[in-house]
């Protein structure tokens, strides 16, 4: 469903942000990209949405090349960013209404929006409240509601849990499991080792634009991911 083949990005200032990345995510699967700041996680997601052009290699969603046919590819993927402000003067429902109509779904009723907001765990009083009064966690939930309403088979999340309180983060994990059970392929970037271990079916550790190791859930039952992560960081530092 989500696939990167030899995906490489070199910026104008010659910084190699992504170096021959290869990964595949199937439906019913959550993939976590783990890495420090600047490891290339966000660049990867940006490439899938064609926010930037790849230098070489291909990113595909549902088999569609994201660089050659971005409009078509984006129909099959939903995006949740690290810290989205949304339109502060709009209510939660108005924001949902606007973004879903951008995906071409115009026939939704108020109740549909309310249903999704309930699903992501927004309190009922917030449905018709202006978003500028929302806390970060509430905005994040609304962002996920937008992604859900898109009904895309692939879901790409950029640091979705950063800055969330433990309760909100736990709710969020439940939500991800629910989406996985609905058959979605989920790619999530994070620098939170515990969260990655908790949700991921597979974890990829990134450093300096390279995917240095990939572990499955089964592997992680026998290995301590945190130690592994720190070990790889050190190793690559020595390699540097």
């Amino acid at each position: 469903m989500i696939q990167a083949t030899d995906l490489t990005k070199r910026y104008e200032d010659n910084l190699l942000a992504l170096d021959h990345l290869n990964l595949t995510i199937q439906p019913n699967q959550i993939y976590c990209l783990l890495g420090a700041n600047g490891a290339g996680k966000t660049t990867t997601i940006n490439l899938f949405f064609n926010f930037i052009e790849p230098t070489s290699g291909t990113a595909t969603i549902n088999g569609i090349d994201c660089a050659k046919n971005p409009i078509e590819a984006k129909k099959h993927a939903a995006y949740v960013s690290e810290n989205v402000m949304l339109y502060g003067n709009f209510t939660a429902r108005q924001n949902l209404d606007f973004f879903t109509s951008l995906t071409g779904r115009n026939n939704l009723k108020k109740e549909d929006f309310y249903g999704v907001m309930q699903e992501v765990g927004l309190p009922e009083r917030a449905f018709e409240q202006r978003v500028k009064t929302f806390s970060k966690g509430m905005r994040q939930k609304l962002g996920i509601a937008i992604a859900i309403l898109k009904q895309a088979p692939a879901l790409l999340l950029d640091e979705p849990t950063s800055g969330l309180d433990p309760k909100a983060a736990a709710d969020f994990v439940d939500l991800l499991f629910k989406l996985r059970s609905e058959g979605k392929a989920i790619l999530m970037s994070t620098h939170d080792v515990f969260r990655a271990k908790e949700v991921a079916d597979r974890v990829g550790i990134m450093k300096g634009g390279m995917l240095i190791t990939e572990k499955t859930k089964e592997d992680l039952q026998y290995e301590d991911l945190e130690k592994l992560y720190l070990k790889y960081m050190e190793v690559s530092q020595i390699a540097d």
């Binding site: 949405f49 409009i71 984006k74 995006y79 960013s81 949304l86 973004f99 951008l102 962002g143 937008i146």
Partner: peptide, 10 residues
Amino acid sequence: GLLKLMLSTS
């Protein structure tokens, strides 16, 4: 962050 969200649609 709204531009990215908007451009993540088609």
